[in-house]
Measured scan of single mutants.
Amino acid sequence: HNLTITQGKLFFHYNPKLCLSEIHKMEEVSGTKGRQERNDIALKTNGDQASCENELLKFSYIRTSFDKILLRWEPYWPPDFRDLLGFMLFYKEAPYQNVTEFDGQDACGSNSWTVVDIDPPLRSNDPKSQNHPGWLMRGLKPWTQYAIFVKTLVTFSDERRTYGAKSDIIYVQTDATNPSVPLDPISVSNSSSQIILKWKPPSDPNGNITHYLVFWERQAEDSELFELDYCLKGLKLPSRTWSPPFESEDSQKHNQSEYEDSAGECCSCPKTDSQILKELEESSFRKTFEDYLHNVVFVPRKTSSGTGAEDPRPSRKRRSLGDVGNVTVAVPTVAAFPNTSSTSVPTSPEEHRPFEKVVNKESLVISGLRHFTGYRIELQACNQDTPEERCSVAAYVSARTMPEAKADDIVGPVTHEIFENNVVHLMWQEPKEPNGLIVLYEVSYRRYGDEELHLCVSRKHFALERGCRLRGLSPGNYSVRIRATSLAGNGSWTEPTYFYVTDYLDVPSNIA
């Protein structure tokens, strides 16, 4: 807008934040220059609390790290170098490059900038070799853009010569660093050979998330399962459950009422301010606690030095998902009996873990797994792929695949051998790939016309006998059925096997 004052003059007093240069501009645009008398524009009460600059400061050096910015700028000295009290560095987070010096300023003089007072450097006698002032900004957020400017702080001049310097606002972004852990990993099994893994992005990506790394490792069953005799009275049979499938998407929606109208769909109840505040506090606490764990609990591995020492970490090797089922080394339970199943799973520490690289999504279907087997899954978020990966501390989750139908069934015939004193040795093959492992066998036998009897055969007993022995049988026709019990439950009964026990007292003698 054009402003013209045809008559009258300007009068400025007691404006401590208004620089004289701005008042002189007002004289020019209003056409009143030359009308004012000496005392109409006070030299001592206008701009006496402001830094009124008329020179431009330029930054000469900028260096960044993930949490620091090192700045240096060209030296500046007023005509009387004693008038320079120091520099004021202003900075704040700036997602967009549209910041002005006066953003967030209120009537009390406060604003949204963080201000650092910096002492002037030592003055050199040689004007050509003056030290460049600077400042190291610490405690910054990774991968965050900051708006920065600097200006001088000078003393009051009796001659009211307006001098000083100020830089333009520059924008500097800190470097990326390792992201925080992925949030809320959930693993479920939808079949006997697959596990579905879902997660949420890290709360602090500290860069642009480029991919996720998912490692999985087959877990050995508890050692007590191999040692305890679950045929003993009072000892509860062990059981394991597989990871249940995901709930429906509708039930997972946030901010939804727990109660549904019987007449149909209901609208979600909005969260109160107290609920939102509580969630923010919980989120802040979780982030602080995660940072504490990362800094205190997890110790970084030592990389190899120039002395030739090897990095103890196993090298990563990509495998196809079809090879995942046989990740671990199978060892027989008892070496003397080769027909026992290889369900003991000690994992070799030198073995390469299978892994998958996930790009542009937060889910993965891990296939080719062994049925009813526990897996430990390790999830890392990465925001750099080359020249070397920059990934987060791992988040861990466990899951067990679903049982395989008929995996616990005894394959092959049940054979028998009759000894003296009416002892019958029953023999059968253990299931080759049971659900988890076989903890015991149930032997059901009966003599024709009598009630059915049951015998429990422990895992250890089966390994020693290759089956079991029935003792003290009365003469007669017998039928026997056997079924295995694994961590997933009972298998199917075998087809009945028949044998006849004679009275050993009636056996004919070869003595003449």
Rank of each mutant, 00 (worst) to 15 (best):
H425D: 14
K406F: 03
S320A: 15
E417C: 06
D273C: 02
S283V: 10
K460L: 03
S363F: 12
L225H: 06
R319L: 03
V439P: 04
V345M: 09
G467M: 05
F355W: 08
G476S: 01
F499M: 15
S284H: 12
T241M: 07
G476H: 00
S262D: 12
P332F: 04
Y500R: 12
F462N: 09
C456T: 02
L379M: 09
M402D: 01
T485V: 02
F372G: 05
A407M: 13
L455C: 10
R301W: 07
V480G: 01
C267H: 02
R318E: 13
T328L: 14
V501I: 06
F226K: 03
R301M: 07
F355L: 10
S492Y: 02
V423I: 07
L225N: 02
T288A: 14
K432W: 07
E389W: 11
L213R: 15
N435E: 01
E495L: 06
R390E: 02
K287R: 06
Y441N: 02
N295L: 05
N206H: 15
G306T: 13
P403K: 15
L437M: 04
T241G: 11
Y478T: 01
A405H: 03
S243Q: 07
Q429C: 11
A263V: 12
C267L: 09
D222F: 12
S342R: 14
S342N: 07
D385R: 08
L437D: 13
G234M: 13
N477L: 12
N383I: 01
K233L: 12
S304F: 13
V299A: 15
Y478D: 15
L321F: 11
V334M: 12
S203Q: 08
R318M: 05
R353H: 08
E221V: 06
Y498H: 09
S274Y: 10
T333P: 03
L321T: 12
Y212R: 00
G325D: 15
R319I: 05
Q219F: 14
I482L: 07
S262V: 03
A394M: 13
F215H: 05
V507R: 15
G368D: 05
V324C: 07
K361M: 11
K302M: 13
T340W: 13
R316F: 04
F246P: 11
V334R: 06
H371T: 11
S342P: 09
V457L: 15
R240N: 09
F226G: 04
F337Y: 11
S458T: 06
P413I: 00
I366T: 00
L213P: 02
G412H: 11
V358S: 05
V214L: 07
R400C: 04
N490D: 02
E417M: 08
D291W: 14
F246T: 09
R286F: 13
S348W: 09
Q256D: 12
E452P: 15
G476M: 00
E356S: 13
M427N: 15
E442N: 04
G489E: 15
C269E: 10
E290H: 15
K278V: 12
E495S: 08
L232G: 09
W242S: 10
E378H: 09
T333A: 14
R481H: 06
P354G: 07
V507T: 07
N422G: 08
Y292F: 04
D273G: 04
M427V: 07
V480A: 10
T497E: 12
H254K: 15
G476R: 00
I418V: 08
S392M: 01
A330H: 15
T415V: 10
L470Y: 01
V214W: 01
G264I: 11
R301P: 01
W493S: 09
Y500S: 09
P238W: 13
V324R: 15
T340P: 10
Y441S: 01
V397G: 04
S305N: 07
T241S: 05
Q429R: 03
V297H: 13
P496K: 14
S398W: 12
C266T: 07
K271G: 05
Q275K: 12
P300R: 03
L473P: 02
T401E: 00
R301F: 03
A263M: 11
S223M: 12
T502L: 12
S315P: 09
G436T: 08
L470T: 02
E356Q: 08
T347V: 12
E452K: 07
N477I: 09
N255F: 04
T497W: 13
Q384F: 09
D204T: 02
P270K: 11
K302W: 10
Y448W: 06
L453M: 06
C269V: 10
H211I: 01
S509H: 15
L437C: 14
N295P: 15
G476K: 00
L280V: 12
T340K: 14
E224M: 15
I482D: 01
P475F: 06
V334W: 07
T373R: 05
K357S: 14
I366K: 09
P431H: 01
E356M: 12
G264A: 15
V345G: 11
L235G: 05
V329Y: 15
E282L: 13
F285M: 14
R483S: 07
E433M: 05
T303Y: 08
V507L: 02
T340G: 03
G374M: 05
V439R: 05
E389N: 15
S268W: 04
P434N: 07
S203F: 12
Y504F: 05
K406I: 11
T373V: 14
L235R: 08
P238L: 08
T343I: 10
F285D: 13
N360Q: 13
P354I: 12
L235W: 11
V501E: 00
R301H: 13
S274K: 08
S268A: 05
R218M: 14
I418R: 07
A399G: 11
D204S: 05
P300S: 07
R376E: 02
R471T: 08
V359P: 07
A394I: 02
H425R: 14
E290W: 06
Y500P: 05
R240I: 05
T497P: 00
Q275I: 05
Q219M: 03
F499S: 01
S203V: 06
V327Q: 11
G325L: 04
S474C: 14
G306K: 13
T502F: 06
H416N: 12
Q252P: 05
E433I: 13
W428Y: 01
V214N: 01
R319M: 05
N360T: 08
L437Y: 02
E247I: 02
W216I: 09
Y500T: 07
L470Q: 01
C391K: 11
A488S: 07
R447G: 12
D385G: 13
R400H: 14
D408E: 01
G308R: 08
T494D: 00
I377T: 03
